[in-house]
Design a protein around this nucleic acid. Structure first.
Lengths: 240, 240
DNA sequence: CGCGGGTTTGAATCATGTCAAGTTAAGTGG
DNA sequence: CCACTTAACTTGACATGATTCAAACCCGCG
């Protein structure tokens, strides 16, 4: 390996990186970090870009440094369903499987730090902390997927919309106190995306959004910026 | 610890146990197995029994040795959704969280081998193989949950029913060649369970089942035993 | 100015839910 | 062995929420 960089310092690339602070890299020591950096690659992609296709070979995993990624699945006749969203500093990838079972697409502009599959898998062998960290993320994603199953299976259209807004309100809130009762955020999804996520049509999404607006639960500016004056009222609409 | 049992032998309890062969215990050596056995408890519960309540403290995890467990979530007004099923030799539990976010209920008679939470968590620290095994199960469950999200969000009632039957056909097939094109199995769920899983009503479930029967895709005997003469035709109905 | 993507709105249709009877099958007790 | 009960399931008629199809709108951009 290389000698010229002090082993006890964090690589420059990582010093100010969110992945390093909160993501999976927080489990790595300086040595491991240096090793990973050697094969890692930082990249930015614009919204709408495909990151990974269904049944495609996976050769790189990545950390999401900023932006929102949507995970989708498609039926043979074209019906589509979003099965999850990932935010910084999530890890993007499905260890132990060579082929992807879903599509990953940038919903907004996304910045990634990617590394070869083998690098992560080797490091996972060496570092139980890393593996545990990944395990925990998988469990969290599982909890989340199951929550959405309830929403998809049992909620009405307007409850679905309210639930979605609530999720983004929680994620967008710039780690402001959790107790906050109002929210203001950019919806990173088109109506079509929302429909795909909630198992609805764009028309129904549109109708329910205007209903929420008429009832003064939300304000919509520029079709994208959402303002929720009273999160409790929105929560009530979400059926929880 | 005890001395009279040779450390290099598999504990009697485990010798013929499915968990030992295919479950998480397959990652443990004899020593670890002996340690776990000391605090483990084998139990059988009849169908319908609650294994774990929402927001309940978790103090024991378990291996499922036989039977089917259903995992459910409930909205405040009583609407219910099944969010997953577990079969032998799955591990039942949610590490790293003291409170359950879901209900677990025996769908059929179920035999469990349970152990204290701490025992597993300690052993997870010691054995990366065990942790990896659990991680893999979590990833599989995540894949499955996402598959069902597509079904819940985008499929019609009859496609949902067909998908469910297909899942049970796959799980029930006693590891007969995967290439098998017909199946015969006991439906371990009531119509109400099916409805709760697919986000439908029992009436719709009943109607779609009779439709499948009229179309000769399935035969139903005793309201419980399902025979599928041609899995490909069923698969076509499932919208894949 | 007009063009196109994303969005909203309206009216008609359809799938699924709701409500209400029946049916079947499995006890249970006389 | 025969009521009687009960739970699970089926079937029918009707109501309704969501989709479909069609049209209009809005707004940034060439």
């Amino acid at each position: 390996m290389r000698r010229d960089i002090p082993k006890d310092a964090v690589p420059m690339l990582c010093a100010s990186c969110e992945g390093r602070n909160k993501g999976i890299c927080s489990t790595l020591d300086c040595h491991q970090l240096h090793e990973l950096v050697r094969s890692s690659r930082k990249s930015a992609v614009e919204g709408g870009a495909a990151l990974l296709g269904e049944a495609e070979r996976i050769d790189r995993y990545a950390n999401i440094l900023s932006g929102v990624v949507k995970l989708t699945k498609t039926l043979s006749d074209g019906r589509q369903q979003i099965v999850g969203h990932q935010f910084a500093p999530d890890f993007l990838g499905r260890p132990f499987r060579a082929e992807s079972q879903l599509n990953a697409e940038a919903a907004t502009e996304v910045v990634l730090c990617s590394f070869p599959r083998e690098a992560i898998e080797r490091m996972m062998q060496e570092s139980p902390e890393l593996e545990r960290r990944l395990y925990k993320q998988a469990l969290d994603e599982l909890d989340e997927a199951r929550d959405w199953m309830v929403t998809l299976g049992r909620k009405t259209a307007s409850e679905k919309i309210a639930s979605l807004l609530l999720m983004f309100a929680r994620h967008a809130e710039p780690s402001g106190k959790a107790g906050r009762n109002f929210a203001r955020f950019d919806l990173p999804l088109t109506r079509a995306d929302i429909a795909d996520f909630l198992g609805l049509t764009i028309e129904t999404v549109s109708r329910q959004l205007t209903r929420l607006r008429n009832d003064k639960i939300i304000c919509i500016e520029n079709n994208r910026l959402i303002i929720v004056p009273d999160l409790r009222r929105l929560n009530a609409r979400a059926g929880n």
